[in-house]
Design a protein around this nucleic acid. Sequence first.
DNA 1: TCTGGGGTCCTAGGACCC
DNA 2: TCTGGGGTCCTAGGACCC
Length: 423
Amino acid sequence: MSFELLPSAHTLALVDCNNFYASCERVFNPSLNGKPIVVLSNNDGCAIARSNEAKALGIGMGEPLFKWRHLVNTQSVKVFSANFALYGDMSRRVMTTLQQFTPHLEVYSIDEAFLGLDGFKIDDHEAFGRQIRRTVLKHTGLPVSVGIARTKTLVKVANHAAKKDPRQQGACALLDDEVIRQRLSVTPVDEVWGIGRQRAKWLHSREIHTAEALRGMDDRVIRKHLNVMSMRTVYELRGIACLELGEESAARKSIATTRTFGDEILDKDALEGAVCSFAALTAGRLREQGSAAGGMQVFIETSPFKADYYTNAALGTMSPAMSFTPHLMAQARMLLGRIFRPGARYKRAGVVLLDLVQQDVQSPGLYEVPGDQEKQERLMEVVDQLDGHVFWAKEQMSEGMHLKQAHRSGRFTSRWGELLAVG
DNA sequence: TCTGGGGTCCTAGGACCC
DNA sequence: TCTGGGGTCCTAGGACCC
């Protein structure tokens, strides 16, 4: 086991949007301020984002709607179907704003980014954090919290403190040893980035309850009972950076489209239509990052909450790697044929593209007759430019397979009509 | 009745080889 | 009862994250 120990003089900020999806809904409907808001997953299944007021009512992350539906009436909880087009657009606005502060930006997820602050002359880091906060609020209407520290794991702790401790006023710097010690002493080990349920449970059984206690553990015990990742986590808590700032977004190593259906599917043709449309969607994202896939997995699943649960997956390799939609659709259909079991009531399915490689874009010479490969690439370029206006013959989502979205808000940032309708 | 979607990394164990 | 000992490669599944 070896670690690349970077010089630990780096200073990082982590900017994280507060209750991101719920806050996005509020930006376009200020009357929701102060009210409990919940954003639902696809099919309006469970809670994937909650405003502070909704959290206070005890609505848990991932908790299905039917378990707290009574609160919608008794507590006037405002419920929204997920509106990812809106959230994606708001995310881009936040990231653009953050770029004004540093050229070293790592967009880590839809609602958070790490900022490299090396070489900055900053007297008061928390004041600087609050300045970022004010700027993002002014430009986007979204509240954020800012943590500042010297490793990613510490900056996560700082961000959490900024968010939860009102005395911090939205920004927290963990740069001073004594301040770090105090903060880690009141941070439950469960909240440390990289310590999930399983490891937290194990740690509690060894009487390790806080981040400070975790930091003081014997390396040999960690290496023996936890894994390399946990060892890195502990080093990072000690102020030794093991995780670098990744500035350019690397190409993904796998791309998937999976859905839970609104209604169960029994018919093979219908399931085939869904799987083909997943293949087409995934292929589009594959080409977007300039890749081709050397492998594909198709999986199908019945409801895990019912008897006779059935799930299966088929894996196929493609050589050479491909990105041509019709071929990927044919492959998906073939793989589905291997695992389809008549009589089962399918609730979920998905297509995963694996073994991604960079697609070499070689434009053919002027007088060269394009081969099949080039013709296919050109066709896909045209299709991608049309962006969703072309429907493949086999790509058919019938009634009932569409998402249930009873509570979707307007696509304010992409459809003028829906913005104007609010007024 | 009603329970999301999309990723990453690590590890144990089997297959295979010499 | 004994029944080699390593390597490497691959994959399925676990754990974790947002």
